[in-house]
């Protein structure tokens, strides 16, 4: 859908009636030395929905996630988070405090505690929601023992939630790549988040695992947790997300519903390169014809499950 010449995007009043934002980026930017990793960016993540952050490699997606979760402070701007207790400026808080507010994340390069059993990894996730301290641990009072028991049970249930219940006692490092990603999600869910940041949850997963992952992300969303995810698999993104932000070279180039974003010429240009922008009409069209012959049966299943989209 090539926009007409002289196209001016109209103000979309419909979106004002939509769900509340749970996270708002207000001119957030980050420089590394002289390199602008993220240029001043606005955007919202919507409550109770799945929001995706997409963009080519090096677009600054993970940097943006790191700024939201407090691992690196923004050079400019601020991140506003809307927990039930009222808006908070995340840029003023330390990482562990942000986690305590119900904002959990996973990592692109898996960061599990690989020598610990899977169950203990998830137990660590409950840290922000439990309170046992030095004296509690030393004295072993009834309330503390009770809390410890609850942590163990809840951790096990988190593992069952992502389908790793049977592997609770294996070390995290011995799990397969896809299982490790699921374990990261379980650990993040343990902190009882209201907003879950997933940094490329499907990376390195085979198609079958991806199907499971999509169902899992939907279940998380249905349990009332807003999801903000970075993903490269366009098919997956277009399928599950209700709101999309597109970054390119550290700049937000589009934001909106999947259909809008898919039609946006700047997005097509960013993904396919300037010279082939004209050729980009075809992939933007719905139903891109028969599947190529080298596709496996599994991939065809996936296509059936997710519909056809371009895959970056």
């Amino acid at each position: 859908m090539k926009p007409a010449p002289g196209y001016v995007p109209k103000l979309n009043f419909e979106s004002l009636k939509g769900p509340n934002p749970i996270l708002r980026l207000e001119g957030v930017a980050r420089n590394f030395g002289g390199v602008a990793a993220v240029k001043p960016t606005d955007g919202v993540v919507l409550e109770g929905q799945i929001t995706a952050l997409i963009g080519p490699n090096g677009a600054g997606k993970t940097t943006l996630f790191n700024m939201i979760s407090g691992l690196i402070p923004p050079s400019l701007g601020r991140v506003i988070y809307y927990p039930k207790s009222g808006p908070v400026c995340l840029s003023d808080l330390r990482t562990h405090e942000i986690c305590g507010l119900g904002l959990a994340r996973t990592f692109q390069n898996i960061r599990l505690f690989s020598d610990l059993p899977a169950l203990d990894n998830v137990k660590v996730g409950f840290h922000a929601r439990t309170s046992q301290g030095l004296w509690g641990a030393l004295l072993g009072r009834r309330a503390n023992r009770r809390e410890e028991e609850e942590i163990e049970a809840a951790a096990f249930r988190c593992l069952e939630f992502v389908g790793l219940g049977a592997r609770a006692h294996e070390t995290a490092g011995s799990l397969s790549y896809g299982e490790q990603r699921l374990l990261e999600i379980a650990r993040a869910m343990a902190s009882g988040p209201r907003l879950l940041l997933l940094d490329e949850p499907a990376a390195g997963m085979n198609p079958r695992e991806q199907v499971v992952l999509v169902a899992l992300i939907r279940r998380i969303r249905d349990s009332g947790v807003s999801v903000f995810l970075i993903e490269h698999h366009m098919r997956l993104v277009m399928e599950i997300s209700e709101h999309i932000l597109v970054l390119d070279h550290g700049e937000k180039i589009a934001e909106g519903a999947p259909a809008e974003v898919r039609a946006n010429p700047r997005v097509i240009e960013a993904y396919l390169g300037g010279e082939s922008a004209a050729a980009a009409e075809a992939p933007a069209a719905p139903a891109a014809g028969p599947a190529p012959p080298q596709q496996t049966a599994l991939e065809r299943d996936l296509d059936a499950a997710f519909g056809d989209g371009e895959d970056a």
Binding site: H96, R111, V124, A128, A137, G140, E148
Partner: peptide, 26 residues
């Protein structure tokens, strides 16, 4: 006791991966 407690887990988590431990509220 400390080793098995929330505190002990936090220590082990910090040792294994500091960034991840921070992001998990430690």
């Amino acid at each position: 006791r400390l080793h098995r407690s929330r505190l002990g887990r936090a220590w082990l988590a910090m040792k294994a991966d500091e960034i991840s431990a921070k992001a998990n509220g430690i």
